[in-house]
């Protein structure tokens, strides 16, 4: 049990998807404009990563590796991800057409999000157990969501700052991410 708690903390904070492994940087820059989009993306990533992870792990371990087809992992996992997103969108559409219109572009783009694919590939290639992989995926996504929300808060704060002109826009956000990464480094001693 403690091993799993450790795994959760490691995945969410110490090996944070975006601040340590720089997996989802593009999303961090683009989708943290305000709390709303941060939460939307965070929840989407959580659902998609968790579902994809649960499905891809057995396929990766028992199907592809057994028949020595691990090279196909990338494509197969991507297609599974796409299927999950498609299912999710179909579900949302059933519930509310308006929400569907709103969420469709966001969810489709998460297929191209390296955070999702990165973590599910990593789980299979390193060879973690099913439970461990799932914990890593879920808490990795939670950590990503937390980072997005913190970033949204800071962005709101620095919106009217006198940032030097060349740094306005993406550069100052990258510096912010750097400072957040330094802050998160404090968690490394916990394990």
């Amino acid at each position: 049990m403690t091993k799993l708690i450790y795994a959760a903390i490691i995945s969410a904070f110490i090996n944070n998807l975006v601040l340590t492994r720089t997996f989802g940087t593009n999303s961090l820059i683009r989708d943290s404009r305000d709390y709303g989009s941060a939460i939307r993306l965070g929840v989407s990533i959580l659902i998609i990563t968790s579902l994809s992870s649960v499905i891809t792990w057995p396929i990766g371990r028992y199907l592809l590796e057994k028949f020595n087809l691990s090279a196909l992992e990338t494509i197969v996992f991507l297609l599974i991800e796409a299927a999950v997103v498609w299912l999710l969108l179909a579900l949302v559409r059933k519930i509310s057409e308006k929400k569907y219109q709103q969420l469709s572009p966001l969810l489709t783009l998460t297929i191209a999000n390296s955070a999702v694919l990165g973590i599910i590939l990593n789980n299979v290639s390193v060879g973690y157990s099913f439970v461990r992989s799932t914990v890593f995926s879920i808490f990795g996504a939670i950590g990503f969501g937390i980072t997005l929300i913190l970033m949204a808060g800071i962005r709101e704060r620095i919106r009217y700052n006198d940032v030097p002109q060349p740094f306005e826009g993406v550069p100052i956000l990258l510096v912010t991410a750097a400072l957040m990464a330094i802050a998160f480094y404090g968690f490394t001693g916990l394990i």
């Binding site: 709390y35 929300i149 913190l150 808060g153 800071i154 709101e156 704060r157 400072l179 957040m180 330094i182 802050a183 998160f184 480094y185 404090g186 968690f187 490394t188 001693g189 916990l190 394990i191």
Partner: peptide, 27 residues
Amino acid sequence: FRLFGTANGSVCFAILLGNLVVPLIER
């Protein structure tokens, strides 16, 4: 941090993390 992790520098890291959640606290 002090009881379960590295003790040195714990205060500074904690302050930084506090700084990060200030926007949320203020909200």
